[in-house]
Nucleic acid binder design. Structure first.
Lengths: 143, 143
DNA sequence: CATAAATAATACCTTCAGGTATTAATATTT
DNA sequence: AAATATTAATACCTGAAGGTATTATTTATG
């Protein structure tokens, strides 16, 4: 996959939360919506809270809510927080720091792709996704 | 990474072999050129032979040689043989068979990227890479 | 205050890509 | 025929991502 499974989970979670941005939700509700393994989802929520994307509130009427407006959460930020951006900068054939070394035979070939990915992920926000029509309730297919 | 480490190894190996397409080479020679862990490289050579990209000849003056002309080996074929194309077809957010379901919120967003990747990899041959100036002798940076 | 319902933290388990080791088979040279 | 240099096959090891289990903490409410 282009992004890791966990990262795509994170994006789906934030997207779902952005659909009613002002109201808090719980991990259990999200689990029912997204069909992500409940325990894993809960742990990921904690990670997203630590990273400052959402705020958690404990206790009986607790839950999670977006920590900042959905239109200020860029996909690139989520990717960076969850899996790091190294995979975007890394040369497709493994030349360390591809940007500096035009010796890589695939440099030109894949340059466009990387550029597109960076442009897209750093100009698309969670709100953009939330506004899009579809919902995502399907379980992951591996790989 | 966009493609797996093993796949990029495979591409680098075929690229190196294509540089003098007519002559056979050995795993040891390739190891010295490419700095890929020798044992892993040897095992990968066997895989590439099984998949029909190269031919192996045992014995004292044995070695490997391309099984078909470098300009008939497309990157998409190598990727497919080594890691499968599922990762290319798979939806970035995990909707099974994204091509059929326009419900995925990122369908449009990432459609261009996938198209570019498929176009590039299925129109670029190992020969194209072999003709390009640089050589790749750097060890992989992880991730 | 006790209970219930939620998040937080932490430790452990599982799977698989990447990597290592060993042995077998084959061909050439002496 | 023996030694040597190569590929082929197979089984095992390792680390990290993905997933599970358990316990602690916080808060609302009867």
């Amino acid at each position: 996959m282009i992004i890791s499974k966990t990262t795509s989970y994170a994006i789906r979670i934030l997207q779902a939360m952005a659909r009613n941005e002002k109201e808090a939700t719980t991990a259990t509700i999200l689990f029912r919506q997204l069909k992500i393994k409940e325990r894993y989802l809960k742990r990921l929520m904690t990670t997203l809270a630590k990273q400052g994307f959402i705020k958690g509130k404990r206790g009986r009427s607790g839950g999670f809510i977006l920590a900042r407006p959905a239109n200020q959460i860029f996909l690139s930020g989520v990717i960076e927080a969850v899996e790091g951006l190294e995979s975007f900068n890394a040369c497709i054939l493994g030349v360390t720091d591809c940007r500096l070394s035009p010796v890589c035979a695939m440099h030109d070939v894949w340059g466009e792709i990387r550029k597109t990915m960076l442009n897209t992920s750093s100009s698309t926000t969670i709100q953009d996704l939330a506004k899009s029509p579809g919902n995502i309730q399907t379980e992951m297919s591996n790989k």
